[in-house]
Design a protein around this nucleic acid. Sequence first.
DNA 1: CGTGCCATTTTGTGATCACAAAATGATTTC
DNA 2: GAAATCATTTTGTGATCACAAAATGGCACG
Lengths: 237, 237
Amino acid sequence: MALRRSAMQSGPVKAASDPSTSRGATRQQVDNAVRSGMLTGRFIPGKAVTIRGLAAELGVSPMPVREVLQRLAAENALEVKPNGRVQVPDMTPARFDEVLRARTLLEPELAELALPHLTSRDAKDLQSIDNDIDERLTSGDAEAYMRLNHAFHFRIYRASGSKVLLPLTDSLWLQFAPFMRTVYGRVGTASLEDRHKEAIRAIERQDAPALRAAIAADIADGMGLLGKEILSDASGG
Amino acid sequence: MALRRSAMQSGPVKAASDPSTSRGATRQQVDNAVRSGMLTGRFIPGKAVTIRGLAAELGVSPMPVREVLQRLAAENALEVKPNGRVQVPDMTPARFDEVLRARTLLEPELAELALPHLTSRDAKDLQSIDNDIDERLTSGDAEAYMRLNHAFHFRIYRASGSKVLLPLTDSLWLQFAPFMRTVYGRVGTASLEDRHKEAIRAIERQDAPALRAAIAADIADGMGLLGKEILSDASGG
DNA sequence: CGTGCCATTTTGTGATCACAAAATGATTTC
DNA sequence: GAAATCATTTTGTGATCACAAAATGGCACG
């Protein structure tokens, strides 16, 4: 990807009158870059992420990068090693089991909370996203699949207006996404199944138990493939 | 509390040979101070927390304070307002309901995970903590009660060795603690009941369903009082 | 006496600097 | 030739600086 280099000049080249530099704009930019990078496999589990390296890559000073990394570490998306280095944590069987369990507990709840706020328009949008997913699955584009699957789930969850369960779930996705990316890159996405259509039908009928069941089954299906991999390979470092 | 002022002198008074200044010691100190401050009602919901103020109070530069505040904000323990100010978020009925639901889902799970690792020695320790709690309840010391109640629960949960559910639960406690503190300061702790003794007995008998039930009931009892308050008063600003 | 306006101060943000610990690579030694 | 040692470089951390936005307080005006 193309990188901004303007701020790397010799002097403090500050864009004083740039209207886009509102409060915390740089940090937001770095945060977005790192988060989307995590979800698309930009960072490899076990490989160290350096503050200065990331700062140079994004064309900013190490300062906002530091704060963003601290934030991500607080969400358990990154791990701060005793020497201060930060990296994507390795997936372990125990950790994987916990993520699966937490998702199974929280996400059906979140979906049920969201259900009353989901209109037929939302169902249409979800239908559209799911169609894209089906195309990507057959074409084997793992990165696009992950982005769309994330979009599908959080399109539902965000409608809940949740301020507690939603951030917790966000943290969970950030934790398993890098591992998921590794596995999909190795075994492909062809064998993936999901319960998105069942979820959409449940939303159309405003059927809470059915929606809960669909979300729970979707999680079990999607993570099942990963579970088999981790048992046979232990995160494949 | 007594404060270090050495670093506030005119020059950069760096303790070069101090063995306690290992990697990230200052940030750890700030983090501990702020976290324990949150749990003991040092910060008031709605009142802004200033970086420079906290830094001066702790005798450090604004730098580590910034990072700690970002971390706490990422855990939803603090709220970053659009202008950059950070404060303890107000409790709302919807938010409270979500915290209660999340606790009810996660903590019994955590307790069950921990159960196999809990020995009779742990049961003894828990017994001791619970005795202290009973004393504090009658004497009405809200701050001590909160610290001990936290110690009781996390003595159990920490034994699970969890790397996922435990941090999530940590975040939840940080979110309701300041509100809890406010309510207890107003209505006292005399009317509080808990199910700690049932939990201890379940641990001694290694009875997982009983432990789950005790934890769930304890959460319901403890939060029930708060729930009534928030309905009648809406966080009492 | 109340209200709008402006100067002052406070505060968050991003950048840069200095320093120590850790990682890295070359060199020496057995 | 392999392993240990040491100099070099890289990296994280804490501090300070500069600047703009926001909060604050005083002042003039109605």
